[in-house]
Amino acid sequence: MYQMKRPWIWVAMLGRMVLNGIKETGTLALFAIRGFINIFYPPFYWRIFWGSLLDIGYLSLPVVALTALFSGGVIALQSYTGMSQYHVNSAIANIVVLAVTRELGPVLAGLMVAGRVGAAMAAEIGTMQVTNQIDALKTLSTNPIKYLVTPRLLAATFALPFLVLIADILGVLGGFTVSVIKLEFSPEGYIAATLNAVKPIDITIGLVKAAVFGFLIALMGCYHGYRSRGGAQGVGAATTSAVVAASILLLVFDYLLTDIFFAK
């Protein structure tokens, strides 16, 4: 770095940060486009796709199911303590179903999958990078983006909506169980209130969010893994970055999508 007078060094550092940020965004965008566009160029690596789909969709089920079940239950409990003083207990079913389908289902399932799958992708691809396996792919005339990234992006985009649908059902079930058993609501009344409150559009938008989240999680996992350098430590750092970046991006996009779809 050039020698600079003290007051200006901060300007230089600020400039460097901005430039790095722009560069990083550009690299990421190119990576995402390359990953996505390869869907349309054969060959498509179906084995990797089915493997990832199984890993993301099926093996994440227990984690996502438990998260949704307890979150639905806790919302019922919390809104009951908050609302019993106003005698509007009938609103509990309403709150549970809207909170779960619109927000908690996609966001919590997304965060759990980011921790489980995003980290695993970053670690696997990162290890392949630092042990030259990605170079080996190139020398075997296989495009590493097409082979490693594209099937994972696609699998996560398909798997997340499916997981969220399960999370929606179990979240409502959690709220129902707590309300009926602990708060002694009538089951028929609760179900009627739930069906009355939820609209298909709520669920659909939740699922659209889920697809976007799935894409983001896989993108972050692959991107940070692909860029890891320098052995075990590099892979560890990549894994952390993948999970942190995926979680933050997920919440940012959650806001943006909510703003687009619900705020009128």
Binding site: T127, M128, T131, N132, Q133, D135, A136, T139
Partner: peptide
Amino acid sequence: MLFQNSALFD
């Protein structure tokens, strides 16, 4: 190419 660490796909 034969890599130094073999670089087999594990």
